[in-house]
């Protein structure tokens, strides 16, 4: 059987199938399909995204979770790329008090940096950890800081006719992007014919990121906590100790909880001077410029 042989194109579906678009007919609804059968864990996607946005350390718009499954010698490795789902019913948008985050008519869930007050309500709301607060310091300080940020589905590229940066970089060819409302698009065909799943479908957020060949277990939230290696515990603790996320709620595992709460308090107090400086500065601009 040569590779030139044409195979029948039968829609196939095994088991549960996430329905396709809930978008508005006639409008675009951009979506990403991640074919996990082709993901090789190279993390080119994460790096391409970080360089595209000059993203600071300690925050991620996309990342790849890695899980080793099975007992020796029947061990397999599973990769799970993650990013904002650009939900059709985005909890983040619903809960934002200032309309700093909003749903674009083409499906993107976007962020207006100049409106965002950094209250992090949206971070609490997002069930997927897709959002982060941009730290105080970054390489290019003309880019937003101390406001919330997330994957934008690279709208600045898409509007210029380019695929998102992570899609362009995907070595395995696992990430595909397009308009699911266009039946001729690659993504629409995949969503229609493949068994696709989304993350946490039970929450009713209607994600626009579909996975082919996803493994239920690693999509599951508690698994990430219960099945960590010791290395992951140490690393996360280092992250909490050293990354100035200004969240004042991190608890280092293995330390007494209330002393951690106390340290969080101190952390908060320590930010007061620089925030005061920033506030004064802002008022100066506000009043005199």
């Amino acid at each position: 059987m040569g590779n030139q042989e044409i195979q029948p194109k039968i829609p196939r579906s095994y088991g549960l199938q996430t329905p396709g678009s809930k978008g508005v007919a006639g409008k675009k609804r951009y979506a990403m399909v991640i074919d996990l059968r082709k993901c090789i864990g190279c993390m080119s996607c994460s790096i391409a995204c970080k360089t595209e946005y000059g993203l600071p350390l300690g925050v991620w718009r996309t990342w790849v979770k890695v899980v080793d499954k099975g007992k020796y010698p029947n061990t397999k490795r599973v990769f799970m790329p993650r990013l904002c789902n650009h939900c059709d019913y985005p909890v983040c948008v619903r809960n934002c008090p200032t309309q700093a985050t909003y749903k674009h008519e083409d499906g993107f869930v976007l962020q207006r940096y100049n409106r965002c007050i950094g209250c992090r309500t949206c971070m609490v709301a997002c069930p997927y950890n897709a959002r982060h607060l941009l730290p105080e310091k970054r390489t290019d300080d003309n880019l937003p800081r101390m406001v919330v940020d997330k994957c934008t589905f690279c709208i600045h590229r898409v509007k210029k006719g380019l695929v998102p940066s992570c899609v362009q970089a995907c070595v395995g060819g696992a990430r595909l992007f397009g308009d699911v409302n266009d039946p001729n698009s690659e993504v629409a065909k995949l969503v229609a014919t493949e068994t696709v799943t989304v993350l946490k479908p039970e929450l009713g957020t209607s994600p626009s990121v579909y996975y082919i060949g996803a493994d239920w277990e690693i999509m599951d939230e508690p698994h990430s906590y219960t099945n960590r290696t010791d290395q992951m515990v140490d690393e996360f603790n280092d992250f909490k100790r050293n990354h100035k996320g200004d969240a004042f709620a991190d608890i280092i595992e293995g330390e007494p909880l209330m002393s951690e709460v106390g340290k969080n308090w101190m952390g908060f107090l320590r930010t007061i001077p620089h925030k005061a400086k920033e506030t004064l500065h802002a008022f100066k601009i506000f009043l005199f410029d």
Partner: peptide, 22 residues
């Protein structure tokens, strides 16, 4: 059994990606 596999096996390219790769 994936549609991708089927599409990729066609001698002529299927609908190209709607957006440029880079």
């Amino acid at each position: 059994s994936g549609a991708l596999a089927a599409a990729a096996a066609l001698p002529t390219p299927a609908a190209a990606m709607e957006l440029e790769l880079g």
